[in-house]
Design a protein around this nucleic acid. Sequence first.
RNA 1: GGUCCCUUCGUCUAUCGGUUAGGACACGUGGUUUUCAUCCAUGAAAGAGGGGUUCGAUUCCCCUAGGGACCGCCA
Length: 473
Amino acid sequence: MNTIKKTVITRFAPSPTGNLHIGGARTALFNWLFAKNKGGKFLLRIEDTDTLRSKKEYYDQIINTLKWLEIEWNDQPYIQSKNIESHINIINKLLENNHAYKCYCTEEELDKEKKEYLIKKIPYSYSKKCRNLKEVNLQKPFVVRFKSKEKGTTILKDLVQGDIEIKNNTIEDFVILRNDKKPTYNLSAAVDDYEMKISHVIRGDDHKINAFKQIQIFEAMNWVIPLYAHIPLIHSKDGKKLSKRDDVSTVEDYKKIGILPEALRNYLLRLGWSHENKEIFTLEESIKLFNIENIGKSPSKLDFERIKSLNETYLKSLDEKKLTEDLINYANNYKTEIKDKYIETIYKNLPFLKNKAKTLEDIYNNSIYIFSYNLENKEINKINANQIENIKIIFKKCSDNRDFDYLFLKNILDEIINNKKINFKDIGQPLRIVLTGSQFGPGIYDIFKSLGNTESLKRIEKFLDKIDRNVKN
RNA sequence: GGUCCCUUCGUCUAUCGGUUAGGACACGUGGUUUUCAUCCAUGAAAGAGGGGUUCGAUUCCCCUAGGGACCGCCA
């Protein structure tokens, strides 16, 4: 028995044709966690051989998003297009070994074939017309097709799905070199996986059929076949395939509403994988506990509430210095920049600013009155004459004692509430509008404290001035 | 249509033949709180259907139904 342990090498192989997908992020996470767990390597390969759709901006986006998620790969990213020479080389070998052949069929001929099959109601696969051509060096454009097995069955020992058996004749003679002399995905992926010494291919369920094609290439070249684990796809809330229109399909969609990377990672980890009753995993625990055996077999739906709830948990447990940094970065990226002079105030008041928040966006909105105060008439109009009178009383008393504290303020409010037989709400609500520009937000005392006496009084004074002017007009 | 895969509370999931089928999110109720939120307590909520195998099936097998993926000279 061979007891030499093979080094685990996994890879994440996105194509730069769009922003990093939430499913892709999970695939990357699983590959990374598995490699870490086994003390192996995790590689990043950019599959950019579709020159029409691949874009540099997407490449950057994917790289940056993985970094944001703190998923780190070993070595430099492998750029698939840089390895084309090697792919062609293998195609030539396959041709020499009689495992592949040139196919001179034109698109028109193929279309005709397809139509004929359609009329006869037979499922279409290439007719293999060129498989046994006598002359193989015609001066005509050609593609290279792999000679798929025609008899027998193949069993894929999938690490997640178990044994999957298919008849070999259901795999057609697939193209491995296009007529523009560029290798196709299945060929490139197989060659790269071999050259990168990938031990475990962990990827989405949608690649399952490709495994059968890639395995045949491995066999034809007499290479050691990697282990495969095909993880079920992530579905949208209504059970359909996630589409770009769902606006929860890319990592960016979560980032821009202020989901923390830790929370998204935790969510993704638990989506399709579990460890007993555990819900919250630190990074160390994720690495220590992750395994392929506990990956579920069925597809899972996204639950936005769960992500937000998880985010809330992280928001509240995160070190507040770090949280403040995250908030500043978030605001700079997606909202208006928060000036340095407000950062200290926000940091100090984080305990209540983050209280009702589930996302960074919530914290941002809660603290907006600190760095971006604006009192609109529409809000002012919500305040009635009696309430204005009360605010005047408060203003007067506080102005006479500019060093007022919580107790002093509370006594004033209590007194008014008692005297006028009103509810706290009747005074709290309008006061909040005056101080923050919105009827929603933190508690009144918290607002006073966070703004400081001077700023609070200044805002009230400005309001009263405005009211006076409005009355005069 | 062909090939393949999947099926436990609304959602994510636990259960490796014997459980009052457990947890989490969301939801309901109660308490704490000036409000909201937090927090605590508590409640409702599931084995798709039908056949087998077995002393016993959510668990193993088959069928049906439902859902999904793939079926490109895209990756």
